[in-house]
Write a protein that binds this DNA or RNA. Structure first.
Lengths: 110, 110
DNA sequence: AATCTTCATCGTAATATTGCTATGTAAATA
DNA sequence: TATTTACATAGCAATATTACGATGAAGATT
């Protein structure tokens, strides 16, 4: 045990979970915030912004990239990381949909 | 190591991370989806919906509750779990804000 | 070519998560 | 009161995450 049973959920549920999980660490939220602020950046910049060692930041960036939240292109000696709008859009529309459904349903029990 | 360094991030970053982490598992996404569908429910119903044993579902519900995503009130012999609109609203506005900033910035490098 | 810079990867230890069975608790029912 | 029902908790094993220092890879600089 310890492994998630991804087989039994819908593709959408697994997709949202993967994206949410990637943002389930404050360092990765901080990375996204920073990428948004500068709109482009390299790993070294982020290392200076975070209270983490370079390999740890590199690892967090890898996880964000694996989840599809950021894109990274090698550019000579540096790497340009950017936010993937599609992934953020997915999350935004997912939560917007929940909000809509919640306001439409006002026969709450709690 | 293995423990997250929450001290060094902003309160907002930690808050988003806590909420996102709670949704970082497909079972918990499925629980939220189901709660939204029925708008009120008890744990037993969810157990029938998920491919997990009752204690595991109970644990996931606890994590959702600890993160503040759902509210649960004891009602006699059953427990009524509902989505906390405020938490969903926080996530929705966070991602909406990112979307807005992304469309305003079109001088991307990637 | 030797070195520097920038980032990735390897190997690791500490801690957290996932999921289960067994058991506990407390209200409802027989 | 004994039993059932509905959920929580305890305790465990398997796996995942977090973070680091050491090292590797590859373009840039001297």
């Amino acid at each position: 045990m310890g492994a998630t049973k991804t087989d039994h959920y819908t593709e959408k549920q697994n997709g949202i979970a993967i994206l949410a999980k990637a943002l389930g660490h404050p360092a990765r939220v901080a990375i996204v915030d920073y990428l948004l602020k500068v709109d482009a950046c390299i790993c070294g910049d982020i290392v200076n912004e975070l209270p983490l060692a370079q390999p740890t930041v590199s690892q967090h960036l890898k996880e964000l990239k694996n989840a599809g939240l950021i894109k990274g292109d090698i550019d000579g000696n540096t790497i340009c990381y950017c936010i993937d709008e599609k992934a953020i859009g997915q999350l935004q529309s997912y939560f917007a949909g929940i909000c809509t459904k919640l306001t439409n349903k006002r026969n709450n029990c709690c």
